[in-house]
Nucleic acid binder design. Sequence first.
DNA 1: CTGTTAGCGCGTTCAG
DNA 2: CTGAACGCGCTAACAG
Lengths: 339, 339
Amino acid sequence: MVTIKDVATASGVSPSTVSRVIADSPRISKNTKKKVRKVMKELGYHPNVSARNLVAKSTKAIGVIMPSSADTALQNPFFPEILRGIGSVIHKEKYSMSLTTGTSDKEILQEVERMVFGRYVDGIILLYSRINDPVTNFLRENDFPFVIVGKPYEQESMTTYVDNDNFQAGKEITQHLIEKGHEQIAFIGGSLDLFVTVDREEGYVEAMKEAGLEIMDAYKIHTEFLKSGGREAVEYLLSCDIRPTGLVVSDDLISLGILSRLEEAGFSIPEDISLVSFNNVYLSEITSPALTTVDIQIYELGSQSAKALIEKTTNMEEPPKRIIIPHKIVYRNSVNKLT
Amino acid sequence: MVTIKDVATASGVSPSTVSRVIADSPRISKNTKKKVRKVMKELGYHPNVSARNLVAKSTKAIGVIMPSSADTALQNPFFPEILRGIGSVIHKEKYSMSLTTGTSDKEILQEVERMVFGRYVDGIILLYSRINDPVTNFLRENDFPFVIVGKPYEQESMTTYVDNDNFQAGKEITQHLIEKGHEQIAFIGGSLDLFVTVDREEGYVEAMKEAGLEIMDAYKIHTEFLKSGGREAVEYLLSCDIRPTGLVVSDDLISLGILSRLEEAGFSIPEDISLVSFNNVYLSEITSPALTTVDIQIYELGSQSAKALIEKTTNMEEPPKRIIIPHKIVYRNSVNKLT
DNA sequence: CTGTTAGCGCGTTCAG
DNA sequence: CTGAACGCGCTAACAG
C-alpha cells in the first residue's frame, strides 16, 4: 500500500507537504504541487480514509435508515427512487452512504447504535416517520444530527425534516374528484401509525367538508399496507349501502392491488369507479388504466434531505428546518367525469 | 468523546488491557473483564471504528453497486428485496453496507474507485451483470474482492457469482405453457446486454425446440427495459401474422406493462393470451390476473452473495465459487389451458 | 495475566 | 513556501 510517506520520499519533499498538496493548500508553490501530483499519479496513491477520518473526527458518510422490512412495504419503488435522490448529492459532495435494512425495531436500533457510537457516519436520514419510534428517540437523546423524510411525530419545530404538504395534496386530489362530479368518495390508506396516511386523509376530509359532502366512517379504510393486495378493503367497501363512485388511495402500490380486486369484482375503472392516488412511481403509468396520481417528487425528497443533512453536519449550529417539496397532480386515465 | 484511555484510567488498568477486554481475549481475568466492562458502560464507551480500521487494515464494510439509475429499471422491486437479503447477513456479521447509485457509467466507476482506493470497503457486490462493464474490469485489474449477482460476462470460472439457473428456469416455465397446450409462444425480454435476458431466452428456445415447436424471429422481442410500458412490444406482437397464445416475459414489472397494454387492446388474460414471467416480486400477486411466475428467491440471492463475499474477504485464498440459487414456479392465474 | 512501547496513515501546529 | 514533531484512538508485539 502506497502511503503519503512514499509519495514524499519519491518526490523529495516531506510528508506534510504532500498532505498540503492533497488539501490543495494555497501556500504550496505551483511547482511542487505539480511535481507531487505527478508522483501521486505514478505511484497510484490514494489517501486512506480511515486515517483521515481518525484525525478529522468526521467521516463524510451518512447513514440511511429504511423502515422495518418485515412486511413487503419495502418493495415499494418509493425506496429505490429516494435512494437515487440521496445518492445524487452524496456523489456530488463526495460523501458516502451507509444503508440499513433491519427486520425488527430491535435490529434497526442496534444498527443505528453501531452507526452513531462507532462514528461510522456524520449524520442520519430516516426514510420513515412513525409514532413513537425508538430510533428517533435514540438520536435525539444522543443529540446526533438527523433528518426525517416525512413529518416528525413530536418536537416538530425542533427537528429538520423534508416532506410534502400531504394535507394539501390530499385535499387537491380529492377536489379533483369532486370537480368531476363525484360525491360518494372513499379513502383507502395504509397504517395510521404513518404520518403520511394521516395527513393525506385529513386533506381528503377537509375537501369533503368544504364541498359540503358527507363523510361516512365506512368510507375511511386503513389496510395494513398492502395486506392481501387490498382485497379486504375492496370487499368492505363493496358491502356498503351506498357504493362510492370515487376512491382516494394513499399509495400507488396499494392502488394497483385495489385496481385488480375491483376488476375481479366486475367493475371497470374509471367507468364504474374512479380512482386517484399518490406518489407517481413508475408503475402508475403502466397500469390499466394509467393512474391519476399526485407526483410527490420522490427523487427531490431524497436529494433535499441529503443536502439538509450535510449542511447540518457541516455546521452544527444550523437551525432546524422544514423543507416542503412541492407536489403536482398528474392527470391520467383513472378518473371519469360524472354527468 | 470517551476513548480507550479514559476507560483505562477510570478502571485503573492500562489501555491495552481495555483493548483486550473489547476483543474478549482469553488471557484476561474474569475479574478485570467485569470491572472494565462496568466502567465502559458507565462512561458510555464505544470503540472508534476509524481508529480500529486504520490498524486492522480492514473495514468490515462491503460496497453494493446498483446498476445505472438513468432509466426507471431501478424502480424494480427486485432491488429493495435484494438489499434486504444482503442486509440480513451484514447485520448478523456486524458488517456495514455502503451503497452506490450512480446515474452514468462514469459516475458509477468514480464511486467504485473511491470505495476501493480509499479503502472504504473490504469487498464489493455488483447487483448487475453486463457486457463489457467498466466496473468489473476495474475490479479485476486491481484484484479487489467482488461477487456478481448474475452471470459474469467473461472469466466465468475465475469469478465468484451468485445466480439462478436462468436457462433452466426459462425452459421450465416455457414447458409449462407448452403442457397447457400452447404452441405459438413468444418471448419478451429486456436488453440483450443483460445476461439474465439471454439465459432465459435460451431456455425458452430450448423448450420450444424440444417440443418441436416453431420459433419465429418475430416472436423474440427485446424492449428496452420497461420502455413505454411494453406498448411497442405488444403492438409489434399483435401485428404478427399468427398471434401467439402464450407469452414468456422476462420480468414481472415488464409483465405488468404488457398486461395493461393487452387489456387496452381488448384481450383478456388468460382467456385470450396466457402469460408467464420471472422474479415473483410482490406486485406479481396483486395484478389482475395474478401472475404465474418463477420465484427466483431474490432475498436468498442477496444473502448468499453477501455471505460469499465476506468469506472471500476474510480468506483471500478462497477459490472462486459459483452459487446457484434454486428457483420454483409459482402457479397463479395468468395461464389458460388450451383444448 | 497485565503494562509498555511502537506504529497504522494522516493533518496540523510550530518553526524556520 | 516547507519540514519536524506530535497526536487522533486503537491494536499488537514484547516484556514481565
